[in-house]
Design a protein around this nucleic acid. Sequence first.
DNA 1: CATGAATGAGTCTTCATTCAT
DNA 2: AATGAATGAAGACTCATTCAT
Lengths: 189, 189, 189, 189
Amino acid sequence: MTTGSVSPRRADTRRNHERILAVAARTLAETGEVSFNAIAKRAGVGVGTVYRHFPAPADLILAVYDREVRHLVDIVPELLARTGPDEAFRTWATGHLAPYMMTKRGLAKALAAATAQRGTLPAGAVQSIREAMDALLKANIEAGLVRPEIDGETVMRGLLGLLYLDPDGDWQRQSADLIDLVWRGIRAD
Amino acid sequence: MTTGSVSPRRADTRRNHERILAVAARTLAETGEVSFNAIAKRAGVGVGTVYRHFPAPADLILAVYDREVRHLVDIVPELLARTGPDEAFRTWATGHLAPYMMTKRGLAKALAAATAQRGTLPAGAVQSIREAMDALLKANIEAGLVRPEIDGETVMRGLLGLLYLDPDGDWQRQSADLIDLVWRGIRAD
Amino acid sequence: MTTGSVSPRRADTRRNHERILAVAARTLAETGEVSFNAIAKRAGVGVGTVYRHFPAPADLILAVYDREVRHLVDIVPELLARTGPDEAFRTWATGHLAPYMMTKRGLAKALAAATAQRGTLPAGAVQSIREAMDALLKANIEAGLVRPEIDGETVMRGLLGLLYLDPDGDWQRQSADLIDLVWRGIRAD
Amino acid sequence: MTTGSVSPRRADTRRNHERILAVAARTLAETGEVSFNAIAKRAGVGVGTVYRHFPAPADLILAVYDREVRHLVDIVPELLARTGPDEAFRTWATGHLAPYMMTKRGLAKALAAATAQRGTLPAGAVQSIREAMDALLKANIEAGLVRPEIDGETVMRGLLGLLYLDPDGDWQRQSADLIDLVWRGIRAD
DNA sequence: CATGAATGAGTCTTCATTCAT
DNA sequence: AATGAATGAAGACTCATTCAT
């Protein structure tokens, strides 16, 4: 009513989207569960609002996934520019992928479930991580550091074990060990 | 009631136990869902019976897991006796672990969920697979084929990607590629 | 606990069925709505119980219908035995069908809705009323009182207007008028 | 805002009114359901607009009803002018009322529901059909073809069975049979 | 021990309705 | 006037769990 007060409705609309996404991200990361009702409550909005923003569960999951993953992808070019390709690979896997995966087991689960229903994930979802990986591999292959027949998908699968790091344990070492194993598995002789 | 009438009940009881386990195994492998009610119905027993045999969901899941995994463990000595350790490792991973994992994603999911609640899995659960793996690694290390500092847990994690093979696709090649990657990752230089 | 108290669970099981049916009958007659939740609450049982007894809405509706309609059917032979066929028809329509229909508009609605989904009603549902009607017509046709080409279905349709009597108004006359109209419409010249 | 800018707004408003009505008519005829939200979407207007035009659901339903029924009423004088009153009655019932009712069961349902809440329908709603009917009856009575004590309401009720014609079946015959029954029921001896 | 009925919490989803813009 | 986002009540349905028999 006063000139100062932000007008509630329309302004909040944008915020809501973000808020729901944030709440969902947290919930998904932890439990892999997405109760629309629960999310609504935690986000302080009505259920209907959640449904308006994300008609189907998959829409929500994918939005969260996208949000979470973008960073992983965006960082790659930078890494490649800063250091040698091998170093870039290790830094990416150790410093970015591992911490990410450790906390996102729930998301992975939800994503898998969403996949199960839709058939394949809407292109660009899991894909984007693959692209990051491919870029790193390509650089390494061109530098003669990695065997050329190596397939990004296989490497990805090899690193999937990062999902099962123990967050309360020695995860740093666990991930370093796995990444080392994978690197030795793909490097040129 | 008296000490005399021993067996008939006991026999039924064992039967039930086995039946429930079998049904649960099937259901878990497929969907990762375990509705106690549904399992009871399919097994042809009352819900109460299921609860008597497996007080908590985790109990059931772990029992199923154990049952499913025993084969994976039992086969190892045989393999080691028949061929060289490297061959044994590859045969085990390719011929037994991979097909097993591909079909047990549901179980893994349930197991993960159970884990999430209990903290850590009751020792001996996932452990048993680790033992199999350790035996194989030990043989290979002693033969000088694998680096001695290699840790079974890490290798296990490296092979976790087998959970994500595509059952309707080229899973044979996918698993071969991953196993090859892992083998190169652990072998002695 | 005392010897006198009826043992709750199993005994109630039978009662529950009846209770749910009774509540549903009332609700259906009035509003044509069957909220399983509401019925459960009014019947003083859990929702799950209602679902156990009547898995699908149609099951409940048909059960209610059956219960309500049986009387209409059972009375016919008696009427035919007691009086002449024309008198029997009028008595049935005026004294039984009309009061019944007046109060069951809701049920008719629900029944229609259930029909819409299932395609046709499980034989024997609406059928039973038709049989009663057919028996009455047959007796009248054999007595030469009603034209032989008359079809029970048509007569039924003619009496469907009884659903729209005004319960708070002069429904006695309204129904008498309609029944008279129909009778004149079917009688032999 | 000023008195000057009259038409453009007004024009849109009328358009909207008509559009909403049209959409609602279609929906109601089919399913008997009127989700204001759904209607708004299909009509390409905001929900708020629908509410402005039709504050309560009943307002919408009645408006639709009126629109649909007008034809039934308007045609009567024409029919009476063209043929004898008995022919007019039959033509009207067979050629206009029957096809109308067969397809408007949904509307009838909605109307009934609306009635249930409001008590009686706002005079003039169902009334208009009654007037048509009365005109036809009056002409027939004056021509000595129909018994003078016949009440339009009763005849209407007799024809209500037309609501339950089977659109996928032999509805032509069904309606002819019913109309014949009714006609015999009202004609002078 | 086994059975399965009952319970009720909790999720999903749809809509009527309000109201800021 | 029109728009459409937000809200929340309400109904459908599923399951985990208890407990009388």
